[in-house]
């Protein structure tokens, strides 16, 4: 049975962090000297605990780099990333990560993949297993536990990826274009499913995408990034009621937000396109 108590939002629990993210004067430059490449301009963002924030930008603008800095894979060249006031120095289980694709361990079963995080946290095999089952049930894949990842469809694999990240009870869920490789129907289903999981689990979500519709549908706030080197050029609040459904796509508020983001991103994409061709 699904243990509802376990899904108490991190904000209502006192045993883990709350998930407030501060990106303070962060800029990221790769390499040194002549070959140095500036991935992002100085950026300042505060994401409140429990917020669902989408980072939207043209491809190659550095949005994934910024996410990787929050995850701890990339060290900011200037400034610092703080999660609940603590500076991020390396990746950790408090920040769950969902990648675009193929990030499950192919030699472990679905069940073992989800139980991996709890095992690393030092929980017993039985305890980790029951956590894995709980989260596989949350994403509707409990009966696929003994399959290997490659035996599942792309969408199912991503749901396992989400379950795996959540099994550590992270205060922050970082998602790097997680539905980018899925077909359109599956993507819509996954978006609804993700909102449902988020409503139950209530963690802070930072979701990177280049898809305007996806960003507007999912987010409380859409942060629009400029062409490379990226910086946040707009912070758009999406005031659509929750729970959201795909039917809202025709509502004026949705259309207006979408139109606004689209215009901004279009201008940026053109800039990026022209600079690449220059």
């Amino acid at each position: 049975m699904l243990d509802i108590l376990k899904f108490k939002a991190p904000q209502q629990r006192d045993d883990i962090g709350k998930g407030r993210i501060e990106v303070k004067d962060v800029s990221i430059t790769f390499g040194k000297g002549k070959s140095a490449y500036r991935a992002t301009e100085t950026t300042d963002i505060t994401i409140e605990a429990g917020e669902f924030v989408c980072i939207l930008g043209p491809s190659g603008c550095g949005k994934s780099t910024l996410l990787n800095a929050i995850a701890g894979y990339v060290e900011p060249s200037t400034g610092a990333v703080l999660v609940d006031g603590k500076e991020v120095r390396k990746p950790g289980p408090d920040r769950g990560m969902v990648f675009q694709q193929y990030s499950l361990l192919p030699w472990k079963t679905v069940y073992e993949n989800v139980a991996f995080g709890p095992r690393m946290a030092g929980h017993s095999r039985t305890e980790s297993g029951s956590t894995a089952n709980t989260f596989l049930e949350l994403v509707g894949l409990k009966k696929f536990g003994d399959r290997y990842p490659a035996e599942l469809s792309g969408g199912m694999q991503q749901r396992v990826g989400i379950a795996r990240a959540l099994a550590n009870y992270p205060s922050v869920l970082l998602m790097d274009e997680p539905f980018g490789a899925l077909d359109a129907q599956t993507r819509l289903m996954m978006q609804e499913s993700l909102l449902d999981i988020w409503r139950k689990f209530g963690t802070t979500v930072v979701f990177v995408t280049h898809d305007v519709d996806e960003a507007v549908f999912l987010a409380d706030r859409v942060l629009i990034m400029s062409a490379a080197p990226g910086r946040i050029i707009e912070d758009v609040r999406i005031d659509l009621p929750r729970p959201r459904s795909t039917d809202m796509a025709t509502e004026p508020a949705y259309m207006q937000a979408r139109q606004h983001c689209l215009a901004t991103i279009k201008a940026e994409s053109r800039k990026s396109f022209e600079s690449q061709n220059a």
Partner: peptide
């Protein structure tokens, strides 16, 4: 070794 798998396990708390 795929780098994404290394990253994924690091963010799951792997040493």
């Amino acid at each position: 070794t795929p780098e994404v798998l290394v990253r994924a396990t690091q963010s799951l708390g792997a040493s």
